[in-house]
């Protein structure tokens, strides 16, 4: 049984890693310095996800179309046991598109975030900056879109 709170925070960082632009993710991961060794449990694999919608936005699901996705699983090497003696942490990467590097970095960060020695560092140096950049981008888009907010008036016939 997956702990709900833990699953929620993990889900949130996996999403942040997936949605990050690759260049920014590379840049943030570089700030971590030397990373522990890891190996692929599942090499990066490109595949599809069928995206679904709902009839009328809220009714029966239907298949809208597919999107590309790349996934991989890595495992940190046993030499970097954390204080709980847990060294076999594995990390999962799921990213839209076909970037194997992106999936790999996402998986590594996911593993590190589950490792007590690394969690706060990766959270502060990778996840928070990524979320901050995403929020800033979103705010900028909202400000642009809001400049086109429109108020129409209906004219009564015969009115001047």
């Amino acid at each position: 049984m997956v702990d709900t709170a833990q699953a929620q925070s993990r889900s949130s960082w996996i999403s942040a890693l997936a949605k990050a632009p690759l260049a920014l993710l590379e840049e943030r991961v570089a700030t971590l310095g030397a990373l522990p060794e890891y190996r692929f449990l599942r090499s990066p694999e490109i595949g599809l996800a069928m995206v679904r919608g709902r009839t009328e936005g809220a009714g029966q699901p239907f298949n809208l179309g597919e999107m590309t996705l790349t996934r991989c699983v890595i495992q940190l090497s046993l030499a970097v046991k954390d204080q709980n003696g847990d060294g076999s942490v594995s990390g999962f990467g799921y990213v839209a598109g076909r970037s194997q590097r992106h999936a790999e970095l996402a998986a590594v960060c996911d593993a590190l975030l589950q490792h007590s020695d690394w969690q706060s560092k990766v959270q502060a140096q990778v996840i928070e900056p990524l979320q901050g950049a995403a929020d800033a981008q979103r705010a900028a888009e909202t400000a642009e879109v809001d400049s086109t907010r429109v108020n129409f008036f209906t004219m009564l016939r015969g009115e001047a």
């Binding site: 699953a7 929620q8 999403s15 996800a49 799921y94 839209a96």
Partner: peptide, 15 residues
């Protein structure tokens, strides 16, 4: 876009 990979057991937004 949310998927729910079996190996995770919870939903994640991938894009």
């Amino acid at each position: 876009v949310m998927i729910c990979p079996e190996e995770l057991g919870f939903e994640v937004a991938i894009a």
